[in-house]
Design a protein around this nucleic acid. Structure first.
Lengths: 161, 161
DNA sequence: AAAGAAAGTTAGTCTAATCTAATATTACTA
DNA sequence: TAGTAATATTAGATTAGACTAACTTTCTTT
């Protein structure tokens, strides 16, 4: 099972998955707009995806995901989502930064690391309240003031930059 | 302050910083070996770094970092270290995976996210023992068994794959 | 100090990913 | 349904980053 895609090509696949979830039908133009790339660039990428059996596409038609393409795309998209979650909900970075960073990070990261990250996010989310308050709130306090909150000290801390 | 480097060029700079810490003197061959790239590739990269005022290099000579190159390189290297720390010590991935993943992740990640990650790692490390045992051990238990350990249940869990 | 080995450079090629301009097809609308 | 607008494709250029082969310089060893 070779199938070596570049991270750029994976980006296209991920975008197709995302569009597919919303639109049911995906065209070159949609991808082009979403990714901010020219249509010829998209065309070229589609050809590569097609050659690798990840999409079906006949000239001037819609772009359909094959089963394989859907599987791989979902996997990539899952990494994306977990990263976003980690960046936004745990590190508490702002939305735009999280999106930008996730895109940079997600490719090439090993499956195992993603698995661990997923577990980690779950672990943190289900964390009991060890310090008399929510664990994540404690982190935000820590980030802001450089020290841990005293028992019962944490209220709401909104700090996004 | 423009100075737009590609992530590949940043990789070279980071390698130079790392070598510099150990060897005091850095040559093309060292970089080539460390990165597993040909010497001509390194030469080309050095030219770019040189044009951007990050290294001084005269033909057939050693490669010296300028002040600016050192500053930027250190910054990049710091991100690298914090990522490694997060991957290895918190997510508990094995050494090789951590190194590989850190390389993929580190470029393009925003300064703010790195700052938050640094704080996060510190926060976790200084975590009191809320569950009757070390927090990270609890995570490893959670990763392995999919549920939180009961009070006083966590011993050593070595699980690296 | 001369010869051979190691390191560094130059020249030229290749691939991936982008673009613009031009052309072709399909869709809309008057 | 004919004409225009939107979409898609092809052709061709550019850039970055890598390579090999060939050449030059420096180092080492006898």
């Amino acid at each position: 099972m070779g199938l070596k895609l570049t991270s750029h090509i994976e980006d296209y696949l991920e975008t197709i998955i995302m569009l597919h979830k919303k639109k049911r039908v995906v065209r070159v133009r949609d991808i082009s707009r979403k990714m901010g790339l020219s249509m010829p660039s998209v065309c070229a990428a589609i050809k590569v995806l097609s050659k690798n059996g990840l999409v079906n596409h006949e000239k001037y038609g819609y772009i359909e995901l094959t089963k394989q393409g859907e599987n791989l795309g979902e996997r990539i998209y899952d990494s994306h989502k977990i990263l976003i979650k980690f960046l936004k909900e745990i590190l508490n970075t702002d939305f735009r930064t999280a999106e930008k960073d996730a895109c940079k990070i997600e490719h090439g990261i090993s499956g195992n690391t993603v698995k661990r990250l997923i577990a980690f996010v779950k672990f943190v989310e289900t964390c009991p309240h060890p310090e008399g308050a929510d664990w994540l709130k404690s982190f935000n306090y820590f980030y802001k003031y450089g020290k841990r909150p005293k028992e019962g000290k944490v209220r709401k801390i909104r700090e996004k930059s």
